[in-house]
Design a protein around this nucleic acid. Structure first.
Length: 502
RNA sequence: GAGCCAUUAGCUCAGUUGGCAGAGCACCUGACUUUUAAUCAGGGUGUCCCAGGUUCGAGCCCUGGAUGGCUCACCA
């Protein structure tokens, strides 16, 4: 297997060429001038006692008070012997005012030399200008970091999507809505943590590097450990490790972390993405449905203020209870095909072909059902909808239904036509599980490199006895996309994967 | 992986029929002591993504390539 044993790093020192234009040149000169006049342009520390918005929103309280703020110069308006600038900090921005008479010539010259993007600390008193803007009159100015590159344009911001993703730091500086997206993302994840911890779930961390990748049908990334001289796989799902913990006696566990899948990139797929997975002993998939409903609805209420939102023009309501449709019924409703009547592999293959779908001659009843579902049903599931009872062939880790052994106690949640969650009553019969793995291996032998591998140790764990359990996975990035009205998954991932520019 | 589109100054963008490379912001010089997309006067700072080709002449046309976006494929 191909491993990255031959690591080629970035350019060597000889190959490195500095990019250097007029604007950078000017700032480097200003840097030198500051140093020559005894001012250190890169500070060590500054005790900012106040935040911009706190002062702006509580002017009466702060008027005439001495405050200290720190941040980035985002706009400058010089007037000869007096100047204004906007200082942007973590909360917003506040105007600062420099006056020759108050600061003295030397300090005023330093203020005048400031560039957009410079990071400064300001101490002074709060007042309101004639035009009514809350402002800090500078008494002391400290340069904390000289900015050596020009900022993107103040009015249009940074629009080039390529640059925004590659240089997210600049995107965050100049596009305030981007900052809001990631603050909201953090709030949602924080909410989920609190929600689960309050329900006595234990947050755990399981391996990212797996000797055998499992828990999902996906192609893994391969990496290599030098000392052990072995290939390892970046995990495609934490599932099998989390269930080992249920075997071990933890009754409620969850993990919020990255999965890695070596597959196509799209507006809904990033090679690394964040999943919530949780497992609850002695529960089943009905409990998982209730939990999912509660978690998503409360997250929306808590973070958005209401249990509904508008995504790219589509109104979505989280009002419970959400619709619950058996997969067979959903397929019948949207495609007209009744898989209760069409029983043989051959019958369903022909029926699917008549609908214009591409089916493989090896596709079984359940696989065809899944294909028809994806094609004909998924795009219609706009409001939160649970699709329940998936076929066994595509659910190798789910418990089979007692009365319908071709189906499993599994559901997926769809919102806006996207798969948002996947859950089931976990298969805890080790003999059945081993057979499922064996049939997955047959698929691998037939060329399906996304089929599960045999995980002997996982079977071993089940053989000691795993309590019946409900398991749930929620795609966090897609949830955040909905909550932040982001059309692309890259807009909710701080540093999405990009090809190197050269 | 395929199709379509994009790539021009630090940023946002124009660029006509193939005929001297443009604007706004930013930047530089000067004026201005409550401005706020500050204003006023002056200054264009460029590997037109890269490499070839056609042409008297290419930002523009052709071929190949790079990166990105969208759609499709892939991806439960």
């Amino acid at each position: 297997m191909a491993s990255n044993k031959e690591f080629e790093g970035p350019a060597s020192s000889e190959e490195y060429v500095e990019d250097y234009n007029e604007l950078i040149h000017v700032r480097r000169e200003k840097l030198d001038e500051l140093r020559n006049s005894g001012v250190e342009p890169f500070g060590r520390k500054f005790n900012a006692a106040n935040y911009s918005e706190q002062i702006v929103n509580n002017f009466e309280e702060y008027e005439g008070k001495y405050v200290s703020v720190a941040g980035r110069i985002m706009a400058k308006r010089g007037h000869g012997k007096a100047s204004f600038a906007n200082l942007q900090d973590a909360e917003g921005y506040i105007q600062i005012y420099a006056r020759l008479n108050d600061m003295g010539e030397e300090n005023y010259e330093i203020f005048k030399s400031l560039d957009m993007g410079d990071i400064v600390g300001v101490e002074g008193t709060v007042f309101k200008t004639k035009k009514g803007e809350v402002t800090v009159a500078i008494e002391k100015l400290t340069i904390l970091a000289k900015s050596l590159r020009p900022l993107p344009e103040k009015w249009h911001g940074l629009k080039d999507v390529d640059l925004r993703y590659r240089q997210r730091y600049m995107d965050l500086v100049v596009n305030p809505e981007v900052r809001q997206t990631f603050i909201l993302r953090s709030k949602v994840i924080q909410f989920i943590r609190n929600f689960l911890v309050e329900k006595d779930f234990l947050e755990v961390e399981t391996p990212m590097m797996h000797p055998i990748p499992g828990g999902a049908a996906a192609r893994p990334f391969i990496t290599y450990h030098n000392t052990l001289d072995m290939d390892l796989y970046l995990r495609i799902a934490p599932e099998l490790y989390l269930k080992r913990l249920i075997v071990g006696g933890f009754e409620k566990v969850f993990e919020i972390n990255r999965n890695f899948r070596n597959e196509g990139i799209s507006t809904k797929h990033n090679p690394e993405f964040t999943m919530l997975e949780l497992y609850q002993a002695y529960a089943d998939y009905d409990d998982m449905m209730k939990l999912t409903e509660e978690l998503v609805t409360l997250a929306a209420e808590q973070v958005l203020g209401e249990a509904q939102l508008c995504f790219q023009g589509t109104e979505i309501s989280f009002n419970t209870p959400w619709e619950k449709i058996p997969m067979l019924e959903a397929v019948k409703r949207f495609s007209g095909l009744d898989f209760n009547i069409l029983k043989s592999d051959n019958e369903v293959r022909n029926a699917a072909k008549e609908l214009g779908l591409e089916v493989d001659d090896n596709d079984t009843w359940g696989m065809v059902l899944d294909k028809v579902f994806e094609e004909k049903v998924e795009p219609n599931l706009i409001q939160p909808t649970f699709i329940v009872d998936y076929p066994i062939e595509i659910s190798p880790l789910a418990k089979k239904k007692e009365e319908e052994p071709g189906l499993t106690y599994r559901f997926e949640l769809f919102i806006n036509g996207w798969e948002m969650a996947n859950a089931f009553s976990e298969l805890n019969d080790p003999i059945d599980q081993k057979e499922r793995f064996l049939s997955q291996l047959k698929k691998r032998d037939a060329g399906d490199d996304e089929a599960h591998m045999m995980d002997e140790d996982y079977i071993n764990a089940l053989e000691y006895g795993m309590p019946p359990a409900g398991g749930l996975g929620i795609g966090i990035d897609r949830l955040i996309m909905l909550f932040t009205n982001s059309a692309s998954i890259r807009d909710v991932i701080l540093f999405p994967l990009m090809r190197p520019k050269d």
